[in-house]
Amino acid sequence: MNWITNRLRPGFRNLLGPKRDTPENLWVKCPETGEMVFHRDLVANLYVIPGSGYHLRMPAEDRLRSLFDEGLFEQIQTPSVPVDPLKFRDERRYVDRLKDARAKTGREDAVLVGVGTLDGLKVTAAVQDFDFLGGSLGMAAGAAVVAGMQSAARHRTPFIMFAASGGARMQEGILSLMQMPKTTVAVQELRELGLPYIVVLTHPTTGGVTASYAMLGDVQIAEPGALIGFAGPRVIEQTIREKLPPGFQRAEYLHEHGMVDLVVPRHNLRSTLSRICHLLVKSEPVRAAAASVPMPEAPEPDTAEPAAADA
C-alpha cells in the first residue's frame, strides 16, 4: 500500500487549487456559512465543516480509506479504452482536456475501484471523482464501474458505489450514452449472484449516471444536501420557465419522495454501510478492525446514528 503514503491526499490538493503554498489556502471556507476551517481539521472531520455540517466533496482515495478497515485497500486495475474516437473538440481538443484532468487528479479517468474489508467482510467499492471532468461517465469510467462489479462478482463480495457525476461525458457522444446499458448489465450480474449492491449518492449525481447504475442499488443512500436528479436544475428552469422550489432535488427531498432509503451523514456512513452489508450477507461484523482506521479522528461513528440518519 505504498502509494497511499507516497501520494498523500492528492485530492485534498485539488480542493485547495494550484496555489496551495500560500498560507491562506490552509484555510477552507464553508460555502454555506463562510466559516473558516483549518485544512487539517477538515480532513480529520471527513471533509464535513464542523460548525455547519456542510458536506464538502471528499477526494476519491480518502473516500475509500474512510470505508475500509485500517484504511487499507487494494486498487483494482481498470481496462484501457479507445482514446477520443470522435476526434472531439469544442473550444479545446478533448485529448487536451483529458491530459489536464489527468495531471490535476493523478488519475487515468474518473473512477477509482478498490477492494478491502469492512468490519471483516470483504467488499469491493468504486468512487467517482468529480474533479476528473465532473465525474462524467465516459467509456473509461463505464469500463471501470463494470470491471469493479465483475471483480465483486468473481470474488463474491458486496459492491458499494459512491456516485458523483454531472452525467454523460459529452466529448464521447453516443459512446458515453452506451455506458448506461453497459453498466446495467454488470448490475444484473451482481443481482443474479445475490450480491448486495449499495449506492451512495454524493453531491452532485445527475444525468445518465442516475438514469442507470446509480439508481439500481438494492439499497440507496444519499449524503445530506447532495443534489440528485436526472435533468439539471438549469435545464428544468429553462423548460418550465419558473423558479424551482427550495430543496428541490436535494437528498432530503428525494428521501421524502421515496427515491432513496436513507440520508446518512458522512460520519455515520461507514457504520451504516457495514451494518447493511453484514445484514444482507448474514454475517457478523468484526468490530476490532474498525478501531484502527487512521484517517478519521472523527466522532465515534455509532453514537448518534439512528436519529441523524433519519434527518
Partner: peptide, 8 residues
C-alpha cells in the same frame, strides 16, 4: 452492450 465502447 458490454462491448459498447471497446469496438471503435
Amino acid at each position: 452492450f458490454l462491448a459498447m465502447g471497446t469496438l471503435v
